[in-house]
Simulated scan of single mutants.
Amino acid sequence: MLASGFFKRTLPIAVGGALAATALSTATASASSGWWVSSGGGAEGYYNHVNDRVTACDIKTDGYKAAVQILANDGRLLTTVTDSYNNGNCSWRTPTLFQGTHKIRACVVKGNARPVKCSAAHTFSV
């Protein structure tokens, strides 16, 4: 753990949306979201059920910041985590999410504009 709200990314990136078998040996693929990458590859995001963290990683120096959104099944935005550092560290938040099915997507955003280049909204359970 680095400064509060930041950590060094150590979990493997999902390939084709599948959570690598070695990731989070105490977690199941349905409980954690796996890593998701924005269209164009500027942002990565993850939900970890072990510590209930939503993580955003800015992975490209392009003037955009990463924005990882958690959505309710009906599409309502529940929380957004942003990271703008592209320094190998990520930003995270521990929101209170109700039990059940949610969606996660990774996007990029410039300033206070709307998120763009979002991945598809992937379903996971809490």
Results as ranks from 00 to 15, higher is better:
residue 47 Y to E: 03
residue 115 P to S: 07
residue 84 S to R: 14
residue 118 C to M: 09
residue 66 A to D: 02
residue 62 D to G: 08
residue 105 R to L: 08
residue 45 G to Y: 08
residue 83 D to K: 05
residue 67 A to H: 02
residue 64 Y to L: 05
residue 77 L to F: 06
residue 28 T to A: 05
residue 32 S to A: 13
residue 15 V to P: 00
residue 14 A to S: 15
residue 81 V to H: 02
residue 65 K to C: 02
residue 96 T to D: 09
residue 122 H to Y: 11
residue 90 C to Q: 03
residue 4 S to E: 10
residue 6 F to Q: 10
residue 19 L to K: 03
residue 99 Q to V: 10
residue 124 F to Q: 02
residue 19 L to A: 03
residue 106 A to I: 01
residue 9 R to H: 09
residue 1 M to E: 13
residue 41 G to V: 01
residue 14 A to T: 10
residue 32 S to G: 14
residue 60 K to Y: 08
residue 62 D to P: 13
residue 11 L to D: 13
residue 95 P to T: 10
residue 7 F to V: 01
residue 115 P to K: 06
residue 112 N to L: 12
residue 8 K to H: 08
residue 85 Y to S: 13
residue 51 N to W: 06
residue 118 C to N: 05
residue 71 L to A: 03
residue 71 L to G: 03
residue 74 D to H: 05
residue 102 H to Q: 13
residue 86 N to Q: 06
residue 123 T to C: 01
residue 102 H to C: 07
residue 59 I to Q: 04
residue 122 H to L: 13
residue 66 A to P: 02
residue 18 A to M: 06
residue 104 I to Q: 01
residue 40 G to T: 07
residue 19 L to V: 14
residue 105 R to A: 03
residue 109 V to T: 11
residue 78 L to K: 14
residue 26 T to G: 13
residue 107 C to L: 04
residue 1 M to W: 05
residue 23 A to G: 02
residue 72 A to I: 04
residue 45 G to P: 03
residue 51 N to H: 06
residue 43 A to K: 07
residue 10 T to H: 00
residue 83 D to C: 05
residue 22 T to G: 14
residue 83 D to F: 03
residue 5 G to W: 08
residue 32 S to M: 06
residue 94 T to M: 09
residue 117 K to W: 07
residue 23 A to N: 11
residue 110 K to D: 12
residue 103 K to P: 01
residue 103 K to L: 10
residue 93 R to A: 14
residue 115 P to H: 11
residue 1 M to K: 08
residue 44 E to F: 07
residue 29 A to G: 05
residue 68 V to P: 01
residue 2 L to Q: 06
residue 113 A to Q: 15
residue 23 A to V: 03
residue 58 D to K: 13
residue 71 L to P: 06
residue 44 E to A: 12
residue 88 G to Y: 11
residue 110 K to I: 11
